[in-house]
């Protein structure tokens, strides 16, 4: 996972979705996730996934990164399905559900900076947890950079010790050990900074206003419609099964139109 690419997209993107308020995006994500989880009709869950894919395309997100990350849980779901699913269709349902839910979460982090996602969580979680979340976000980039350098060093060293896997393994372990020591030293430095600044608990993140309240309302309406559709299909059960191809066909059409729109040069 390339957290830098995600952060860059979240902080410097210019789509309407980027400009929406974090609260609206979180609520919309919650509705779509609930729709995917409670739905038992494969085609309706697939429709949710296709609509999310259209949203990613329409927001001009880096598609290779978004769909690459979304496919990852699909692979694990497929393994889980092979190991535990009672039949092929249940297995397919596991995989489609996993990819749909993951796609929703991934779109959320690609259009919303992490601190904005954590801000609402901070209000409901204990103070220490909220603060530690923000510190994790900060440390992640520093450690990822350090780890990249260490991996480069390991690669160079392994190149020198070709045919000596034990030596290369020792070098790798020492590098991971160094990363642990670096992490502890980093925590000490951050503690020093917090002490100087008089930190007593309670880091606060300000939430920027939404670029357009109308878009926020539209986003919530769309997500609410998806959720309502899922509820209707769940409550109606078999009665609506014969027409369950309709939402999937509509979502596929939306995706095709969005793809065509994206291909038009701006």
């Amino acid at each position: 996972m390339d957290v830098r690419a995600i952060d860059l997209s979240a902080t410097s993107g210019h789509s309407r979705l980027h400009g929406a308020s974090a609260a609206a995006k979180l609520a919309a994500f919650g509705l779509v996730l609930a729709a995917a989880v409670l739905q038992q009709n494969l085609l309706v869950v697939a429709a949710c996934g296709l609509l999310l894919a259209a949203l990613a395309v329409g927001s001009r997100l880096p598609l290779r990164a978004v769909f690459g990350l979304a496919a990852y849980p699909g692979v694990f779901a497929a393994v889980f399905a092979l190991a535990a699913a009672p039949d092929l269709l249940s297995g397919a349902m596991f995989a489609v559900r996993a990819v749909t839910a993951a796609l929703g979460a991934i779109i959320l982090v690609f259009v919303t900076p992490y601190p904005q996602i954590f801000a609402p969580l901070q209000r409901v979680l204990p103070e220490v947890v909220g603060d530690a979340m923000l510190m994790t976000y900060r440390s992640l980039f520093l450690l990822a950079d350090k780890f990249e350098h260490l991996r480069l060093a390991i690669r160079l060293r392994s190149g020198l010790s070709r045919g000596h896997p034990v030596r290369a393994a020792r070098a790798s372990a020492s590098a991971l050990g160094s990363l642990v020591l670096y992490a502890v030293d980093l925590a000490q430095r951050e503690y020093d900074v917090l002490r100087i600044r008089g930190y007593e608990g309670g880091l606060r993140v300000s939430s920027p206003a939404a670029a357009s309240r109308v878009f926020d309302a539209g986003l919530l309406l769309a997500a609410g419609s998806v959720f309502a559709l899922a509820v209707v299909f769940r409550l109606a059960g078999a009665a609506l099964t014969p027409v369950s191809w309709l939402p999937a066909a509509f979502a596929a059409l939306v995706l095709l139109v969005t793809l065509a729109w994206r291909l038009v040069p701006r």
């Binding site: 603060d131 530690a132 510190m135 440390s139 503690y191």
Partner: peptide
Amino acid sequence: DVRRKVPLLGVVAALVLVS
């Protein structure tokens, strides 16, 4: 001392994520 624990928590969580 919570001031010492918060950065340590953040860094170790980040370490697990990176690994």
